[in-house]
Design a protein around this nucleic acid. Structure first.
Lengths: 212, 212
DNA sequence: TACTTATTGTGAAATAAATCACAAAAAATC
DNA sequence: GATTTTTTGTGATTTATTTCACAATAAGTA
């Protein structure tokens, strides 16, 4: 089993690049084209493919269509993924309106908030009471949740999600939620990303040497 | 020089945890408290601290105030960081309204868009024409930019930013921008984060074994 | 069909990151 | 003030990841 997270992230990036190449009319691709496209080495590409059992043709490269099929299979993109969202603040609202998920087969099916003024059970993507989240998860058999609530409520929302049966959480609250057996948590933290950037920018300014 | 990105990200997380501990009234902390707080091992904490030259007191632990000072220094948080934003769509707007940056000393000083209807040079955070971005960067000596434009325009906005003198880019467009000598790029990609999560969720479902 | 060329696929080697384990030292206790 | 306890700091070790390098082989060419 593949446990290397970076490896999976690269897989998504390959897929993305392949879609672009396909749109441009390409039918096959070599490891070094893909390497260029996502800014890694060609042996990295081949090694990754070897790990995932993706094979090509010696001298003939890889068939794009075939790769995409296999990749979507590996990444579980063959059926629409139902996702719930906790928190209808600015970020939550942006996520709901974001069109990019649908083409990836990701559908936000409901949003939860504890501000009664925001509730709207009749909306296209209904906004429901946060206290009902666990029941909803169980009834609809949801596996993936997004947390876009303020820091203070994040851990308790996560606990509630997990106890309802959520197996994967994408967390935007600026706190690193604890991993729990049987649930994966990806933390996305914008302050940290910017802080990280500022660190490397300062280094560049001081030493004129780049990261990596 | 420290080139390990994960290490810098952990530094931000330590800092975050330390602020929370400080708010709770704590004055000193041990490596295993911090380890618990951000879900790593205590030797990882000590090793990181050793790399950054953060030292404590044998048997006495670390003074929170002192750590925070040194960390803010390392991360360049002693002065306000001026940041520009390209793209006033949903995400861009959410970023502008987001209050979390200010307390981290990060200030979005201007936003750029190529839709004339969105321009508003008189706003608190002015919305200016994308074509003026390079000049603005040069005049104001901006070092960090955020890209929140659609995929198609992302690389050209990045090129424009870099030629103006930007040294660090936080990219939200769903494409991995190429790293260039003298400029660091952090890519944040929500589809990829979710896809990654779905991959691990499927593995959990199939095998009942967790990541890591 | 034989020969040349280009590209994959993968063990081996190198590099990077995390963990271990323990000496050193400060605080607490007697 | 001697002894015990606890925690740091770091070199050594282990584990993980990336890169190298080249045999195998399919495609192109004559």
């Amino acid at each position: 089993m593949i446990t290397n997270k970076n490896c999976i992230i690269r897989l998504s990036r390959y897929k993305n690049a392949l879609y672009r190449l396909k749109d441009l009319g390409f039918v096959k691709v070599f490891s070094d084209n893909l390497a260029d496209a996502i800014d890694v080495t060609s042996s990295q590409v081949r090694k990754d493919f070897s790990i995932f059992g993706l094979s090509g043709n010696k001298r003939g490269g890889y068939k794009i269509e075939e790769l995409l099929d296999k990749m979507n299979n590996i990444l579980g993109k063959n059926e629409v993924q139902k996702v719930i969202l906790a928190g209808k603040g600015k970020l939550g609202t942006a996520l709901i309106k974001y069109k990019g998920f649908e083409k990836e087969g990701i559908r936000i099916v409901a949003c939860f908030d504890n501000d009664p003024a925001k509730l709207n059970p009749e909306a296209d993507i209904p906004v429901l009471a946060l206290e009902d989240i666990k029941e909803f998860i169980k009834k609809q058999n949801i596996k993936v949740g997004i947390i876009a609530v303020p820091e203070a409520g994040a851990q308790s929302v996560a606990d509630e999600m997990i106890s309802g049966g959520i197996k994967g959480i994408l967390n935007f609250a600026p706190i690193k939620l604890k991993e729990k057996e049987g649930c994966v948590i990806n933390n996305v933290n914008l302050e940290i990303e910017l802080e990280n950037l500022i660190y490397f920018v300062n280094i560049i300014e001081k030493t004129k040497v780049t990261k990596n």
